[in-house]
């Protein structure tokens, strides 16, 4: 599904990603771990198409199509979703209206009619139940005054509504208490299928107890320095990132 080949990217001449190779197939969950500043969030943003980052070399290919010239919204229309570490507050636009706009824009891009209102409401109801979201919450302004946990839950709610092919969860576990973490992870697990894939970006192993990855990759200085199965995450938890750093130097 996703094929990243020798990806180099940075900001204003500072290279942050330094030759990333990664292949993600449908039905898989990949975890990307690494110390602070290793390039995890940059990788997520580059896949999602953030213009601030300049790709200097290499390719990101989704279903055989090079994404180089695709704007973030076009990537979204092609099925990429990124859950933000710091979701932005949009006063005056309710969660419901925001989702309606997002879904209909995607449908428009795919040449579909707008989703009828009753169908939209049904979908919203269904997905909000999945994430144990109170109905009142949906008529609040997007992310405005939301707690950290509410913001993250709302991110996964959006993911549920948009049904992406490839979901990238950027530090979704940060700032979550254990109950919220469980709800969020549960939501993600229920959305998993044979036809979609998830990339979980995290600093800690904790989230991976709930969203169990098929593969774990360790990012260091903009490169994947080690890949393995879920046991690698446990090893990292035990030994810390210094172990990887030392190994990388050698």
């Amino acid at each position: 599904m996703l094929k990243i080949d020798n990806l180099h990217a940075g900001v204003e001449g500072n290279e942050i990603l330094n030759g990333i190779n990664l292949e993600v197939n449908a039905g898989e969950v990949h975890a990307i771990m690494g110390p602070n500043g290793s390039g995890k969030s940059t990788l997520a943003a580059v896949i999602a198409g953030k213009e601030e980052f300049e790709v200097t070399e290499g390719t990101v290919i989704l279903d055989g199509e090079d994404l180089e010239d695709s704007a973030p919204e076009e990537r979204a229309h092609k099925g990429i979703f990124m859950s933000f570490q710091y979701p932005v507050e949009i006063p005056g636009v309710t969660v419901t209206n925001f989702m309606r706009t997002a879904i209909n824009e995607s449908r428009k891009a795919r040449g579909l009619e707008e989703m009828p209102a009753n169908q939209m409401l049904k979908l919203i109801r269904e997905k909000s139940e999945l994430l144990e979201i109170d109905r009142k919450f949906l008529s609040r302004s997007l992310n405005e005054g939301f707690s950290g946990g509410e913001k993250k839950r709302n991110e996964i709610f959006q993911m549920a509504m948009l049904e992406p092919k490839l979901a990238i969860l950027d530090e979704t576990d940060s700032g979550l208490d254990i109950d919220a973490l469980r709800i969020v992870a549960n939501g993600v697990n229920k959305l998993r299928s044979e036809s979609n894939a998830v990339i979980v970006i995290t600093h800690y192993q904790r989230l991976l107890e709930y969203i169990v990855p098929d593969y774990v990759h360790v990012l260091h200085e903009g490169k994947i320095v080690k890949s393995g199965t879920k046991e690698l995450a446990l090893e990292l938890e035990e030994k810390g990132y210094d172990w990887i750093k030392n190994e990388a130097v050698v």
């Binding site: 943003a45 999602a48 198409g49 953030k50 213009e51 601030e52 704007a71 973030p72 919204e73 990537r75 979204a76 229309h77 990429i80 979703f81 990124m82 933000f84 710091y86 979701p87 932005v88 949009i90 925001f98 706009t101 997002a102 879904i103 824009e105 995607s106 891009a109 959006q158 948009l162």
Partner: peptide
């Protein structure tokens, strides 16, 4: 306009102009 906010909306499929 806040670039980060713009990217957030675009990443949800909302074109730049509408975002």
């Amino acid at each position: 306009l806040d670039e980060e906010a713009l990217f957030y909306l675009q990443s949800r499929g909302i074109p730049k102009k509408e975002a």
